[in-house]
Nucleic acid binder design. Structure first.
Lengths: 224, 224
DNA sequence: GTCTATAACCGGATAGAC
DNA sequence: GTCTATCCGGTTATAGAC
């Protein structure tokens, strides 16, 4: 919070009291960057091309983001913030509730091709330990699996899930299914029904680890 | 088969009858390219850097592959050929046999970090319809799901799997799990035990769709 | 805040020497 | 087969004008 004051927190707000021009510009740059990282990945994306999409020059862009890497970091911070606000506001009371929420997340992602494709590309690229997003994605999966397995463990304790359920394994598996389905969906967004596939997975999974029924709504009723 | 005669089929073999120098060089280039596509993706990889790894110049490399795109295509063709020879030689008699085979494939992949990371990156990048590998990956998933769901359907017919099993859904889900686990494994190859995770998934899945037991070997016995 | 200009470098592909 | 030389263009980042 103290050493970064580029764009979002710094400068013009103090003197003028108006965010309109600068902050809207900043958001438009972030949106354009998502599309470019999705299509080109990080390394092959170009600040000049991103800037052109926004209607400014590369020099102008670098007034808002001090470097290409800074732009990437802020893109990831923003999308993560959107995710958390929407889907991880609090812990889930039951495993079923957790999966209903993940299904909603899948539907949300299925409505944003560029954003989802960007995550596919960056998560894969970040497998290189030298990639600027490597620490981010390592932490992201650690947290995701941790939050989910905690949720599942509470469901085991409450009797919703069978004793002896491998909660960490199921959490990692669920994250894997979501990512893998996204990969297939991005390759064929029209033909591949990602939310329905995830619903089928969740139902089969819950049927095999719950003590009673799945409690999952029918798929047509769950759709948006 | 008729208009491409670069490197693999063309030229020197006809006149000389010796493959040793040229073909070994070609294979070393392909191996180096795998590592570079893994680290940089397609667009940001550089022919000059790849050539340097092999000990030749960019001009020398382009003697073996007429373009960067040609290099990518031949890399994909080679790895796919290796895959098929190893794991899809014939159709599987039972669903269990199919999953035993996929577990072997997972173990195989877990021994090749660069190759696996390359597939993660290229599969994600190829979500862009303009990416040179887009048609390849679209076809790849179509075939994969087709082969697997055929196998599963035979298992339903034989009574191994429950009637009414959504074989296409299970096939897509299985492909998704493999890809998603690979993504997590590449981010943390030491800490994440991909084959064990896949084994746990296969066991849970088979337990929920087979009529009898899973028939899957215990994990330590299955390991290589 | 945005521009132009510039530094310093890297990209793929081609031509031709050997 | 491999090299060097070259073409033409693209890359990030910085400097300074307005």
């Amino acid at each position: 919070m103290e050493q970064k004051e580029n764009g979002r927190t710094g400068g013009k707000a103090a003197g003028r009291g108006t965010y309109s021009v600068g902050d809207e510009r900043r958001l438009r740059i972030l949106d354009a960057a998502v599309e470019h990282f999705a299509q080109w990945g990080f390394h092959a994306s170009s600040l000049a091309r991103i800037a052109k999409d926004v209607g400014i020059t590369q020099g102008g862009l670098l007034h808002h983001f001090r470097s290409k890497e800074d732009l990437l970091v802020q893109v990831l911070e923003r999308t993560e913030q959107q995710d958390s606000e929407r889907f991880f506001r609090e812990d889930f009371a039951t495993a079923t509730e957790c999966y209903v929420n993940l299904l909603r997340l899948t539907e949300y992602n299925a409505a944003r091709l560029g954003r989802t494709r960007m995550f596919n590309v960056l998560a894969a690229e970040a497998g290189d330990p030298g990639h600027p997003a490597h620490p981010y994605f390592v932490r992201r999966y650690t947290e995701l699996v941790s939050v989910m397995s905690d949720s599942l463990q509470r469901a085991v304790d409450s009797g919703e899930l069978r004793q002896g359920t491998d909660v960490v394994g199921v959490a990692a598996e669920t994250a894997a299914v979501m990512d893998g389905l996204q990969l297939q969906w991005v390759l064929d967004p029209k033909g591949f029904d990602m939310p329905t596939r995830f619903h089928a997975y969740a139902e089969r999974l819950l049927r095999s680890i719950t003590t009673a029924g799945t409690g999952l709504p029918e798929r047509p009723a769950a759709g948006g």
